[in-house]
Computed example of a mutant assay.
Amino acid sequence: MQAKFKRSYKFSVKTSLHITIYTTLLVSVFLYYLYEFKWLHALAFAVCIYIFSFFVIQFRVERYIYKRVKKIYDDLTLLESANLSKGPITTDMRTLTQEIDKFARDKKIEIESLKVREKYRKEFLGNVSHELKTPLFTVQGYILTLLDGAMDDEKIRAKYLERASKGIERLGYIIKDLDMITKLEVGDLSLNIEEFDIVELVENVFEMLEMKASKKRITLTFDTDYNKQVLVKADKERIQQVLANLIVNSLKYGRVKGTTEVSIENLIKNKVIVRVTDNGEGIGKEHLPRLFERFYRVDKSGSRKEGGSGLGLSIVKHIIEAHNEKIYVESEFGVGSEFSFTLEKVE
Rank of each mutant, 00 (worst) to 15 (best):
115 K>N: 09
301 S>G: 13
32 Y>A: 10
13 V>A: 06
171 L>R: 11
100 I>S: 00
134 T>S: 13
146 L>D: 15
6 K>F: 07
346 V>A: 07
195 E>F: 03
342 T>H: 08
293 E>H: 08
300 K>M: 04
344 E>K: 15
56 V>R: 00
249 N>F: 00
143 I>K: 10
3 A>T: 05
324 N>A: 13
169 E>S: 04
89 I>Y: 00
279 N>T: 14
54 F>R: 08
44 A>M: 09
135 P>E: 10
174 I>R: 13
302 G>P: 08
106 D>F: 06
59 F>Y: 14
252 K>V: 04
159 K>R: 09
231 L>N: 15
220 L>G: 02
222 F>A: 02
143 I>P: 11
142 Y>I: 00
70 K>C: 04
179 D>K: 04
144 L>E: 13
76 L>S: 03
37 F>E: 03
30 F>W: 06
165 S>A: 11
346 V>I: 01
331 S>V: 08
28 S>N: 01
17 L>P: 11
196 F>D: 12
154 E>V: 02
87 G>Q: 12
292 F>K: 12
240 Q>N: 14
337 S>H: 07
304 R>Q: 12
123 E>L: 12
79 L>C: 03
12 S>P: 01
215 K>T: 00
123 E>T: 07
170 R>Y: 02
5 F>A: 06
98 Q>T: 07
284 G>L: 04
65 I>F: 12
322 A>R: 12
60 R>V: 14
270 N>Q: 09
345 K>H: 10
44 A>F: 09
216 K>E: 14
174 I>M: 10
2 Q>P: 00
134 T>P: 09
229 Q>W: 00
339 F>M: 08
41 H>L: 14
92 D>A: 11
197 D>R: 01
267 L>M: 12
344 E>G: 13
38 K>H: 09
197 D>M: 03
